[in-house]
């Protein structure tokens, strides 16, 4: 089949700077978001995801300007997430130049929001982000639940059932982050990735835990992901996007080179 698997560098942005933490803590600075995005655009990244982890209003305004600047220099799809709670938020981000928005906790508070957003803006620009953690004990059947607040707050919602529901409500794509894996560089949680990829008919982006290029390959081949997202392996120069694509191609995965 001819559709290339996508590589998506992810920029976590706080108060106008790209940062990267380990399991949502211990933050390191990784540069100016527009410069970082331009670099990935030039390297041949297939999309860029941009997550605003700022909590303040001033930070939010900075975010809109950053998206505007990025969109005038980056000509690949741009997904923006973090604090998207209303159709007005979505309109603001799309007008600033985002192609898709990622909805996370607002979907949990009010699932109807996902339906309204996809009807109004089209499923193609509505990504639902799911932060999942394994809750089954060793030996039990695998079970994952959704956590909010950086992984601290359990919701009791089954991650696979939630993904199915969000697809029914009109999500065009699922961004699945494994909270156990995030930043620890042991690879994606392939179990939950595969379970969700098999359960829904919309594309899945695997996220959380990439430490080397084999992890990207595993996300596609074993996890069934349509796209693989990574942050720190690219930000801190361990690998470039072309190196990742070359490696994936050598492993028999179709990529855009």
């Amino acid at each position: 089949m001819a559709l290339a698997k996508r590589i998506i560098p992810c920029l976590d942005v706080e108060n106008g700077r790209v940062v990267k933490g380990v399991q949502f803590l211990d933050i390191r600075d990784a540069g100016d978001p527009v410069e970082v995005a331009k670099r990935y655009n030039e390297q041949g990244a297939d999309e860029i995801t941009f997550l605003d982890i700022t909590a303040t209003h001033e930070g939010r305004d900075t975010m809109v300007h950053t998206v505007e600047k990025m969109a005038s220099q980056v000509f690949i799809p741009l997904t923006v997430g973090g604090g998207i709670r209303s159709c007005d938020d979505i309109r603001t981000m799309l007008n600033a130049g985002a192609d898709k928005v990622s909805i996370n906790s607002a979907a949990i508070t009010n699932p109807e929001f996902v339906r309204q957003a996809s009807e109004r803006f089209g499923s193609q620009c509505i990504v639902v982000a799911i932060d999942a953690k394994k809750v089954s004990a060793p030996g039990e059947t695998n079970r994952w639940e959704i956590f909010t607040h950086g992984g601290r707050k359990p919701t009791g919602i089954d991650a696979v059932a939630w993904a199915v529901k969000m697809a029914e409500y009109g999500a065009g794509e699922i961004l699945l982050t494994s909270m156990d894996q995030d930043g620890v560089k042991n690879g994606y949680d392939l179990g939950v990735t595969k379970a969700i990829a098999d359960a829904v008919n919309i594309p899945i982006i695997a996220s959380g835990g990439v430490g080397n290029l084999q992890h990207l390959v595993d996300g596609v081949k074993l996890g069934g992901a349509d796209a693989v997202l990574a942050a720190s392996i690219f930000h801190f120069g361990e690998y470039t996007v072309p190196q990742a694509k070359q490696f994936m191609r050598e492993q028999g995965i179709e990529v855009r080179l």
Binding site: A2, G172, E173, P203, D226
Partner: peptide
């Protein structure tokens, strides 16, 4: 196609 399920939307880079 070729044993792989094709997701919809058709989202991404195609030839």
């Amino acid at each position: 196609e070729d044993g792989e399920r094709l997701k919809v939307p058709h989202m991404g880079w195609n030839k």
